[in-house]
Design a protein around this nucleic acid. Structure first.
Lengths: 147, 147
DNA sequence: CAGTATTCCTACCGTTTTAATAAGTATAGC
DNA sequence: GCTATACTTATTAAAACGGTAGGAATACTG
């Protein structure tokens, strides 16, 4: 599966906001520095997530971003669809293909696949990713204390 | 989901071969005419399916293609992987992303999704598509006889 | 053995998509 | 008013994709 950098960076940004906002906003510059993603690139991605009502922005000095709701209420389906609706959406053919075989294919394969992808992504939340991240980062750094 | 025209046309060609080869080979020109796909384009797709041992070719005059095995033994997984291994394969990030968050994301979402896609496509065969096609084409033309 | 029908190979071109950058505007805190 | 920030739009550069083209190799046919 090919996932665009935009989707990848978008999700990473959200997890970053989730982890580092302690009742406070998180700025593009912060995210950029921590996640090693160009700030200018983020400025293009985050507004899309705001329009999808996943994050809320505060303008001006001391501004930044926060999640609009608890991380466990934000599904990856919401996020992915906001950034690139083709990822989980119905199969689209560039070259028209108005053939019955293509229809059969759609019924037997593509539509079932995409239905599953949607429902699967609906059952994974930002919280799940953040928790998993915490475990991963814990298992990397914690053992150091015991050396 | 975005599926390339190559994958779509490749599968259509195989179903066409499956339907129209009666112990005989099927030529690119035949497929092209029936499925309305440029012959030159097919000449680019079919060799890939031959290399993947899905079809067998006969060169020269009276040449053409046949399936290497019964249609019920050819899974869509084989076909899709032969034509574009990125469709069902592991998620690939264009922009490197060597972050732990990306790892967490991979574990919680991408790898599970792709594993499912692979296993799902493994359980659909060319025969299934051909059968479905026959039903579709039947339900379109058969009722005409009763008018 | 010549002619023809076919697969095969490789290069090429144009369009679209994507990634990333850039520049400048608007807003709000201090 | 200065500064830090989000917002918007345009632009560039690179890659992927769809499709075309020319010609070489191969094998049947008369």
């Amino acid at each position: 599966m090919k996932i665009s950098s935009k989707v990848e960076c978008g999700i990473i940004s959200l997890v970053d906001i989730c982890i580092y906002s302690n009742d406070d906003v998180v700025t593009v510059i912060n995210i950029s520095a921590r996640q090693n993603i160009s700030a200018k690139y983020l400025e293009q991605i985050l507004p899309q997530l705001r329009q999808a009502d996943i994050i809320r922005s505060v303008k001006g000095a001391k501004g930044g971003y926060t999640l609009t709701r608890p991380a466990e209420k934000i599904t990856l389906r919401d996020v992915i669809n906001a950034l690139d609706s083709t990822v989980l959406g119905d199969v689209t053919f560039i070259g028209k293909e108005d053939s019955l075989i293509a229809d059969a294919l759609s019924e037997c394969l593509w539509s079932k696949m995409t239905a599953y992808l949607q429902s699967f992504a609906e059952n994974v939340t930002l919280r799940d990713i953040a928790d998993r991240y915490n475990k991963l980062s814990g298992s990397v750094s914690e053992p150091m204390y015991y050396i």
